[in-house]
Design a binder for these strands. Sequence first.
DNA 1: TGCTGTTTACCGAACGTTCGGTACATTTTA
DNA 2: TAAAATGTACCGAACGTTCGGTAAACAGCA
Lengths: 190, 190
Amino acid sequence: MSKIAEPELLNRLTQVFRTHGYEGASLSRISKATGLQRASLYHRFPGGKAEMAEAVLKRAGEWLQAHALQPLTESGPPERRLRQMAEKLDEFYEGGRQSCLLDALSFGVEQGAIRDHQRAAMKTWVDAIATMLRESGLSGRTAQERAEDAVIRIQGSLVMARATGDQMPFRRTLRNLPQELLRKPEPARA
Amino acid sequence: MSKIAEPELLNRLTQVFRTHGYEGASLSRISKATGLQRASLYHRFPGGKAEMAEAVLKRAGEWLQAHALQPLTESGPPERRLRQMAEKLDEFYEGGRQSCLLDALSFGVEQGAIRDHQRAAMKTWVDAIATMLRESGLSGRTAQERAEDAVIRIQGSLVMARATGDQMPFRRTLRNLPQELLRKPEPARA
DNA sequence: TGCTGTTTACCGAACGTTCGGTACATTTTA
DNA sequence: TAAAATGTACCGAACGTTCGGTAAACAGCA
């Protein structure tokens, strides 16, 4: 059928968007990365670049859901479940060498489906962690804040990794994530 | 002399780069935002867009150094100094509504002066916090990691703010920053 | 002071290139 | 052979950049 199969095509598209952002992901670059000419790309994605970005976001979201978030809902000690998530995130972001699409595609994209998708993905991610933390005994409010904190730390360490070229902070963040999230809540301060 | 003075010019340039990233900051957009025609921009910045981005980075770095990092070196309780930094960061990022240039300009920019500048800026920032934490009694290693953590949290919460449109996580991150950084180090775990 | 040459700041128009996108012919597959 | 997938050739628009030139401020000197 296709000279290049859908999954691999999406892989390469993802790579381009992650590296260059939305505006930097020109059709020339995409064409070069995928081996498909402009017209062939428009055959696969009649909606053009916007549809490519959406497809890439959708797929990344599905992968994360299936591999990183799904373990959170299973049985076993909470710390273990969080470690599984961290492991998958490490894989997804290639140890900090790859950017997050939610960051890369948040510049220059005004509104529309892409923005909506981003917002929803972020919420899904936070909610999944928060739900798990609540089931582990944390209060609703603490669980929510820590879940946000977890995503914040991951995103921030990816930014730092990209800006400095050093992946260590990212890996350390992932490693410390489980215990940070599960630590005893400190009493409210004066 | 100038129809638009240097500081205000840089303000508007900063705004464009923050919002759209490097590739998204087209000369048309910059021209519209500054009120200067393309050619006039090249009078101010003979090096073109790259020089504009550099100038913007330089200025942002100087502002942060003078307003957010300098208080860290002064006298007074550490927590108070950190609160002053957080206050200035809140101002700089307009409560989470503005992106960080270190993030925005990290896509699509291959290498060269801009990349070097980013790397240096990130290091300066982390070092300033780490030095202060060390002076507050934290061990060198803990201080370094927590300083990285601080920057990570700020960057991450900005990403989240941008992706979700909600500024609360950013503000909460800033508010909690001082106590998070100064809390007693936990003993090494099993 | 008045004159003159230089500098500063800006602009309109155009440069060649690349952008995202399309019509249509050709190849591949079933 | 019909349909699906890909390639060739091209479009108008926008890209970053440069050129030639204008108006005003500034300089030195009589």
